[in-house]
Design a protein around this nucleic acid. Sequence first.
DNA 1: CGTGTGACCGGCG
DNA 2: ACGCCGGCCACAC
Length: 124
Amino acid sequence: MREKKPQTKRVPQIADKRDFFNDVYEIVRLIPVGRVSTYGAIANYLSLKSGARMVGWALSSSQSAHSDVPAQRVINRNGQLSGRLHFATPTLMQELLEKEGIIIKDNTVQNFSELFWDPVKELL
DNA sequence: CGTGTGACCGGCG
DNA sequence: ACGCCGGCCACAC
């Protein structure tokens, strides 16, 4: 018998790529102006345990295609604008956020803990 | 088909 | 407090 298959239960977290992208975009669009969320929080809301990277992956694809997604409101757990280099210009992300009233210093959102918008709690 | 990399996160020394 | 490492999953080469 050829039982070489590991048969690990490693079920693909992303069955349909397009659906996953849509889910991410939908949540990001729900982030209120003047608030921010994180990759991990969104991944958690989508039941992607440690799939924060997948969220970033989805957003990078959205950047050019879906300009109606406020990707600037999604940052990392430290409140840093880790995705700024993926925008049209390195300063665009910060400029967009500042336009929404968010204060940024050294690529880090000030008052992050108060501005943090967690879909798991807010969309409960 | 193996290896490396990524808009990350949590744990541990 | 800080740095390092492993895990996570999909994709490019």
